[in-house]
């Protein structure tokens, strides 16, 4: 039997690793991967509760999360490609047009 608290601990660890990755890495691609990590930890929580509550509704949402992640990855990577075309770089520090 897997303890719920252990599952939640694992999910929290993955989430915080995602957060830290997003904050410290300058490569947009790796920042994106960090986002995927965070989404994954959310899916893990959903599935864990699905198991512990004996209901399948959270799994539906886990599927939705995965679909959302796919959509987000598609658009995000498209943006990266478009950005790279213009700037020849994936360094987030060089993309500062939001200032002004």
């Amino acid at each position: 039997m897997i303890e719920l608290s252990e599952l939640l601990l694992l999910s929290a660890v993955l989430f915080v690793l995602g957060v830290v990755g997003f904050i410290i890495r300058r490569n947009i691609l790796i920042m994106f991967m960090s986002v995927e990590l965070m989404l994954n930890s959310a899916g893990l929580v959903l599935v864990a509760f699905s198991n512990k509550l004996g209901t399948m509704d959270p799994q539906v949402f886990a599927v939705f999360v995965i679909a959302l992640a796919a959509a987000e990855a598609a658009v995000g990577l498209a943006i990266i490609v478009a950005l790279f075309r213009g700037r020849e770089s994936v360094n987030i520090d060089e993309m500062r047009l939001l200032k002004w």
């Binding site: 660890v13 993955l14 690793l17 995602g18 830290v20 990755g21 790796i30 991967m33 960090s34 990590l37």
Partner: peptide, 8 residues
């Protein structure tokens, strides 16, 4: 966890 750490 190790894989996630290495990822980032």
């Amino acid at each position: 966890v190790i894989a996630a750490f290495l990822t980032i």
